[in-house]
Every structure is written in structure tokens, then in C-alpha cells.
């Protein structure tokens, strides 16, 4: 990947714009894919399948798109 990644803070956390666009597109495809092509004709079940699709999209985007956070473990001793 190129070095010039544009990162912005949105909704209180840092995201990379390209990844954000990818993630929105992926989630959209999964949600509507499952909703339109798999679900039967019944409102409750439609919503259920849509949610399943959304969750699938969520899991898949998490495989491809890593969080932009650096986790540092504090060595501070904890007082009680």
C-alpha cells in the first residue's frame, strides 16, 4: 500500500477514508445481497435476513480492515 493514507477523526475515533469507503460498500453489498436474494417474502424474516447479512458484512470487513489504534499496555502499578 501507498504511504499517503488520509486518516480523519469521525464519530470519536480515527478512520482511514479509503478503508471507510470500502467498508461501507462491503457492508452494503452483504446486507442487501442477503436481504434481496436469500430472504423469503415475510416482513419479520426479511429483516432478520437483512440483519444476518449486515453482521456477515461486519465480520468480513473486520477481517480485511484493521483498526487504526495503537494499543499500549500501561505498566503503572495499580493501587487499591
Amino acid at each position: 500500500m501507498k504511504k499517503n493514507k488520509t486518516m480523519v477523526e469521525i464519530w470519536q475515533d480515527v478512520v482511514e477514508i479509503k478503508d471507510l469507503i470500502r467498508s461501507i460498500i462491503l457492508s452494503f453489498i452483504f446486507t442487501f445481497g442477503v436481504y434481496l436474494f436469500v430472504s423469503p417474502n415475510n416482513k419479520a424474516k426479511e429483516l432478520f435476513f437483512g440483519l444476518v447479512g449486515a453482521v456477515m458484512g461486519f465480520v468480513i470487513t473486520n477481517v480485511f480492515i484493521k483498526p487504526k489504534r495503537i494499543i499500549i499496555f500501561d505498566k503503572n502499578k495499580i493501587k487499591e
Binding site: L20, N62, P67, I71
Partner: peptide, 21 residues
């Protein structure tokens, strides 16, 4: 959660849910 769940995917999830409903 902080290591594995990316913020991008959360925003993607919300937007898809709103679009779906």
C-alpha cells in the same frame, strides 16, 4: 475489541442497517 474491531466496520454496519430499514 480495540485490537480486532475496526471503527470503519462499525460505521459501515450502521449505514447498512439504516439503508436496509
Amino acid at each position: 475489541v480495540l485490537k480486532r474491531i475496526s471503527h470503519e466496520s462499525i460505521i459501515g454496519l450502521f449505514i447498512s442497517l439504516v439503508l436496509l430499514l
